[in-house]
Design a protein around this nucleic acid. Structure first.
Ligand code: MN
Ligand code: MN
Ligand code: MN
Ligand code: MN
Lengths: 158, 158
DNA sequence: CCTTAATTATAGCAACGGCTAATTTCTAGG
DNA sequence: CCTAGAAATTAGCCGTTGCTATAATTAAGG
């Protein structure tokens, strides 16, 4: 509340430094979590749909090479989010399931929100894949409220 | 156009694989551009406000160490976005100015959009710092239209 | 002019997220 | 039962983004 004092006098003043640092820090943290969230969400989708999540399927869906997936899965296992059985598929731990469910719901809301705004489905899909990881709880609730207001709790009620 | 055929029969089917790959690819590309955009935008802000952009100021604003900034500036210089004068500040090339202006405008629109949605300014600042990099042209125009509709071209008219 | 403090540069480390190439292991068809 | 092909593993490479510690340079004051 120091630099803010004269902001009203100087409309071109820089934003408060401490606040900006906090924004950048938060964004860096979100960035580190992005991949993990995408992986567990995708694994949950594959399991729910086909019964199993194999490295090849994950790699094919993400558009990366299979050893890239293998390395990431080791990290997820070390983090306690998945269980690996050699030459079998991977499975989510309770913690992994919880994160996957949270990520999936948030992703769906962001995508539905963009669609409710009038964005094309294709663009909404692409943009939400990145935006989702940077949406705070407060913003997510605003998105959800907007979707409900527009769509009247239709569809899967998000 | 293969998996899509039976999507209508199975409401819980996975999204089209090709489309999902494209979303992930696009998001990875956006991720690579994030830091560059934040740097040139911040450099432009510092120059516009204080006349120069020094490594120490950039580092302090970003919340990272000074050698981290030094390394990134080398990359920006190699990419033709800035000019460095040893032990002087850094300056934007025409290309750098162009990218900075584009990034700044997009950032402002995203932040104003979140505020127009009813998000608190603090949260809007934090979330927009990450979201901005994943907003396509189509989505940006929708955001801009929404802000204008709500605010009636007030303020700096974004 | 000289010295000191601030700033920048450089060296070297680590984690992450990609990749290719080669090897190992499993599974299914014959 | 054997074997071919698919899948997973392992090894090793690179670029990015962060860090600390240290050296070099500049700018300013006395
Ligand atoms: Mn997602
Ligand atoms: Mn995503
Ligand atoms: Mn920005
Ligand atoms: Mn940003």
């Amino acid at each position: 509340m120091k630099e803010n004092a004269d902001v009203s006098n100087n409309p071109t003043a820089l934003v408060d430094a401490d606040a900006q640092v906090e924004s950048f820090r938060q964004t860096r943290n979100n960035r580190r979590a992005e991949l993990v969230e995408d992986y567990v969400e995708l694994i949950a989708d594959l399991i729910d749909h086909g019964g199993e999540a194999r490295q090849v399927d994950i790699a094919q869906r993400l558009g990366v090479a299979q050893p890239t997936v293998a390395k990431m899965l080791k990290r997820l296992a070390a983090d306690g989010l998945i269980q690996q059985r050699r030459y079998r598929g991977v499975f989510l731990t309770d913690e992994g399931k919880s994160l996957a469910e949270k990520s999936r719901e948030r992703h769906q809301i962001v995508e539905a929100f963009l669609c409710a705004l009038g964005i094309s489905l294709e663009t909404a899909r692409i943009d939400s894949e990145g935006i989702e990881h940077h949406v705070s709880g407060e913003t997510l609730e605003a998105f959800r409220a907007f979707v409900i207001e527009r769509n009247g709790l239709a569809d899967t009620d998000v």
